[in-house]
Amino acid sequence: MLVSVNNLTKIYRLGDYEVYAVRNVFLNIDRGEFVAVTGHSGSGKSTLLSLIGGLSKPTVGRVKIDGVDIWELGDEELSALRNRKIGFMFQFSSLLPTLSVRQNMLLPASLAGADEREAEARARELLEQVGMEHRMHAYPWQLSGGEQRRVAVARAFMNHPELILADEPTGDLDEDSEALVMRMLRRMNREEGTAVLLVTHSRELAEQAERRLVMRRGRLLEVG
């Protein structure tokens, strides 16, 4: 078992009100599994991803990755876990605007203290897979929205993560870019055994996953 989520709940307080973004979620993800979560806007999909990825602290419940309760870890250990085991894909361009494509790609490897030559080779290989190797030295503002997202998708795989948390990675992308991103996700899932938790509005995309879940008002329901 790679991910084990136990009674996960996240409550936001708005004045006197309490809003349940995620409510009593139980979820297990195996190594190499491809899971899709669909649901309406505001149903808690992104929050669930952030809780599993250690980007936000749950109000109640536990998240274990590789048997380790991530909220029992200190900041250094949790950051190292995010860096080495998890790749994030966001629904917006997540490239750092002041860094070139190459520097953005190398960032996770540098944070991990990886060998520079190996990191360079990996970055080149991943950029080739998303058709962006020719824009290595461009800055994000010199790329189209679709190109930026392709680079961000490639960057998520830099440190050979065991888990990809993809939050609408193809939202507002053209068909070709969407197909390219999904191809890459499936290939990495198949070839490198990376588990994928994909959040999407699109049923079509969700159907490409092995397991499909639906979120409604913070609750997670299994649909097949």
Binding site: D75, S79, R82, L96
Partner: peptide, 16 residues
């Protein structure tokens, strides 16, 4: 803020 959030998601510590 987003830049710092992304850096944290990529594995940067608070100290970093």
């Amino acid at each position: 803020m987003r830049e710092f959030g992304i850096l944290r998601a990529l594995g940067a510590t608070r100290r970093f």
